[in-house]
């Protein structure tokens, strides 16, 4: 992962206590849970990257994950749709369940899982194909449509929901990589929602975008919440505050605190969280 912003090192806060024994705030929910994560540990070879994270992700909520670089938030995000499987040395223990089904069960079809848990990456990565083909890719490989008309419909709807339709409706045959950065990222979002996932993971989706494109994408995230569950990793605390209902603060591979976003930002329970959100380090 590439950290985009430049950080100025500040003296580490003196009054910050050590990491808490267990996660503070409210990591677990009582009802309407989309994904259950329990006691998740992640290892890269011998190095442990995630320590004992237990967290529920509610249906139709936007959960923001914040924390300093290297705190494991992206790693944790990639566990949720098993993107870490592509890294050989990566080992995951604990349980992650999607609607009650353990996603690391050997019987689980990893392709179907990823169709249910979509992902948008830090850097826009449209395929070097036309705009249309980019969006049609998912429905095609999963055989979601019977004919061209249905596919056209899906492409159009996805682009509309991604707020891109007006801009690209006359250039569906243009190469996706020829769009502007913000448009490319919305194309990637359209591509992800074209297969109608339940959860969308976003890994710093705005860090390569300018402020205007960022605002558009943030608005989009808020709209997408009506239909999807969204987990977003971000380096921008303002962004977390703007788009999310709950926020999780990670530190050195541990989940320090999870709470309703406004409570976490106004009244953090832990010194580390407070130090981070007030900009004293990170």
């Amino acid at each position: 992962m590439f950290a985009v912003e430049i950080k100025t090192e500040q003296a580490s806060p003196t009054q910050i206590d050590t990491l808490p024994e267990r996660t503070l705030g409210k990591p677990l929910l009582d009802k309407k849970v989309s994904m259950h994560c329990r006691e998740v540990d992640v290892f890269y070879g011998d190095k442990q990257a995630i320590f004992d994270v237990s967290l529920d992700i509610g249906k139709n909520e936007v959960l923001a994950m914040i924390g300093p670089s290297g705190c494991g938030k992206s790693t944790f995000l990639r566990c949720l749709n098993r993107m870490n499987d592509t890294i050989n040395s990566c080992k995951i223990t604990g349980s992650i369940r999607l609607d009650g089904e353990d996603i690391y069960d050997p019987k689980v079809d990893i392709e179907l899982l990823r169709a249910r848990v979509g992902m948008v990456f830090q850097k826009p990565n449209p395929f070097p194909k036309s705009v249309y083909e980019n969006v049609a890719y998912g429905p095609r490989i999963h055989g979601l449509t019977r004919d061209k008309i249905e596919l056209d419909e899906i492409v159009k709807n996805s682009l509309m929901r991604a707020g891109l339709w007006k801009e690209v409706k006359d250039r569906l045959d243009d190469v996706g990589t020829g769009l502007s950065g913000g448009q490319q990222q919305r194309l990637c979002i359209a591509r992800a929602i074209a297969i109608n996932p339940e959860v969308i993971l976003m890994d710093e989706p705005c860090s390569a975008l300018d402020p205007i494109a960022t605002a558009i994408v943030e608005e989009l995230i808020d709209e997408l919440r009506q239909r999807y569950t969204i987990v977003i990793v971000t380096h921008s605390m303002q962004q977390a505050a703007r788009v999310s209902q709950r926020t999780a603060y990670f530190h050195l591979g541990k989940l320090v605190e999870v709470d309703k976003t406004d409570r976490l930002f106004t009244n953090p329970s832990h010194g580390l969280t407070e130090a981070y959100i007030t900009g004293r380090f990170g």
Partner: peptide, 17 residues
């Protein structure tokens, strides 16, 4: 770029696809 592969895998594509 690896990002192309990731993008495809994240949409639930198999290796062959």
């Amino acid at each position: 770029p690896q990002a192309m592969r990731d993008g495809s895998y994240a949409l639930g594509a198999t290796r062959a696809e």
